[in-house]
Computed example of a mutant assay.
Amino acid sequence: MTNKITFFRFSNSKSSFDYELKEKQIDEQNTLEAHKNYLKDNPNRSYKKLNDSDLTALHKLNELKKDFKAGLSYKDQTLLDAYNIEERLLKPELNNNSVKERFHTKVLSEFNLDDLKELISQKNYNNHYESYEESKKRVSDTDLHERIEVKDMTELNELIDEMNKKGWSVKQIEGIQSGRFNVNFGDFQSGGGGYGYGFTEGIMILWEYR
């Protein structure tokens, strides 16, 4: 009686074995969660496509911002960029220095502040909504769940059928476990950290020739 061994790697094992790819997937999941939380925190707002008038107003705001910055010294430009400009328009209490107050006054001379706040809020919501949908698809396309995919089962069944036709039958199947870990000891003040995880990389098949 003749035996031989082959190794069948699951299609999702590369994402588990490739640490950089795994990190990108984890980052994408964190991004997805951040967008999801933003949408959850704004339950009274829904996605609404901006019309031409809205886009014209946003373009006008960008041009005003550009012209205002052009008249500032480098130091004042840096000061103006210390906080997100649109965030300051949504929260005027952040305008706590002369440069920001001058910019706020300039905006008030060109826009109705309530209308502009609503437009910026809707634009921000739309951006989060679109990013959420895009991120959700990317996470789905690179699923992190450690499980056997449908295509793995199809390929495995095809392999077994092919081997059976050649006179080989499955005698034993064993899962192959792998893992990744890393430790960063850091310094005395910051301490250290690390990560570690295990995953099923594939299966070992012991064949028996009939």
Score class of each variant (00 low, 15 high):
2 T>S: 10
8 F>S: 08
10 F>N: 01
14 K>L: 15
16 S>R: 07
20 E>D: 08
23 E>H: 08
25 Q>P: 00
26 I>N: 04
27 D>K: 10
29 Q>C: 12
30 N>Y: 15
32 L>M: 03
35 H>K: 08
36 K>I: 00
39 L>D: 03
40 K>G: 03
40 K>H: 09
45 R>C: 02
45 R>Q: 14
48 K>A: 13
51 N>K: 06
54 D>G: 01
59 H>G: 08
60 K>Y: 11
62 N>F: 08
64 L>I: 11
65 K>D: 10
65 K>E: 10
65 K>N: 11
67 D>P: 03
68 F>W: 00
72 L>Q: 09
72 L>T: 03
73 S>G: 11
82 A>L: 11
82 A>Q: 11
83 Y>P: 00
83 Y>K: 12
84 N>F: 07
88 R>T: 08
88 R>E: 08
92 P>A: 05
93 E>H: 04
104 H>V: 01
108 L>F: 06
110 E>M: 14
112 N>K: 13
112 N>R: 06
114 D>F: 05
116 L>H: 01
116 L>W: 02
122 Q>I: 07
122 Q>H: 10
123 K>T: 04
130 E>H: 04
135 S>A: 14
135 S>H: 02
137 K>R: 09
138 R>Q: 12
142 T>V: 07
145 H>F: 07
147 R>I: 10
153 M>L: 08
154 T>S: 14
156 L>Y: 15
160 I>W: 01
161 D>W: 06
161 D>Y: 11
162 E>V: 04
164 N>D: 05
168 W>F: 14
170 V>N: 01
171 K>C: 00
172 Q>F: 15
175 G>N: 12
177 Q>P: 13
184 N>Y: 06
188 F>S: 09
189 Q>K: 12
190 S>V: 05
196 G>T: 03
199 F>I: 04
202 G>C: 02
207 W>F: 01
